[in-house]
């Protein structure tokens, strides 16, 4: 498998906080207008938001390149695909 080129990290969305706008609104704000190849990290505290992120990536043609559990938080690294 070839090494992926380094991605430009747009930022981190912490969706574990007490905010009405959820993780997708935050990711859209970070990645929506960003150039292909840009990445973002989403921190979610529940399985429904995790499912949301995967479904959104599928619809957008983005990739979840890393998913790890940090205690009660799931950290997902998302890359805006070059061909999306």
């Amino acid at each position: 498998m070839s090494e992926s080129p380094p991605h430009n990290l747009a930022g981190t969305i912490d969706a574990t906080s007490h905010n009405c706008k959820g993780v997708i609104a935050g990711l859209e704000a970070l990645l929506g207008d960003a150039p292909p190849g840009t990445s973002a990290v989403a921190l979610v505290g529940d399985v429904l938001s995790r499912h949301d992120v995967h479904a959104w990536c599928d619809r957008r043609g983005y990739r979840v390149t890393l998913e790890e559990r940090r205690g009660n938080v799931i950290a997902l690294t998302i890359v805006k695909s070059r061909d999306s």
Binding site: C20, K21, G22, I24, A25, E28, A29, G32, D52, W56
Partner: peptide
């Protein structure tokens, strides 16, 4: 959500 709004 994709329009960056909350949904209730």
């Amino acid at each position: 959500k994709e329009n960056r709004m909350s949904a209730a």
